[in-house]
């Protein structure tokens, strides 16, 4: 049995649209201002600094 149409405030349905428009405007602005838009990947080389330190300080073993 289906219930009748709910009387939810109509503006609620427009919230995702407003958020999305804000998102698009923001990233469009970011695209037009390309300076310093690089976020360094933390995916690779995260122990390299420790490896360098190991060789420079002439210690033979580090527990990371």
């Amino acid at each position: 049995m289906s219930e009748p149409v709910k009387k939810r405030p109509l503006w609620v349905y427009w919230v995702p649209v407003v958020l999305f428009v804000g998102f698009v405007q923001f990233v469009a602005w970011q695209l037009r201002n390309p300076a310093a838009r690089e976020v360094e990947s933390a995916m690779i080389g995260n122990c390299n600094s420790r490896a360098r330190a190991l060789m420079e300080r002439d210690i033979s073993e580090i527990s990371c």
Binding site: S2, V5, Y13, F20, V24
Partner: peptide, 23 residues
């Protein structure tokens, strides 16, 4: 992205009030 997602969200905003939540 703007056309597809924006369009779909707008369509949802216009039509969702006529879609009941059902049982």
């Amino acid at each position: 992205l703007s056309i597809y997602i924006g369009g779909a969200l707008t369509l949802f905003a216009v039509r969702a009030s006529t879609v009941t939540e059902g049982e």
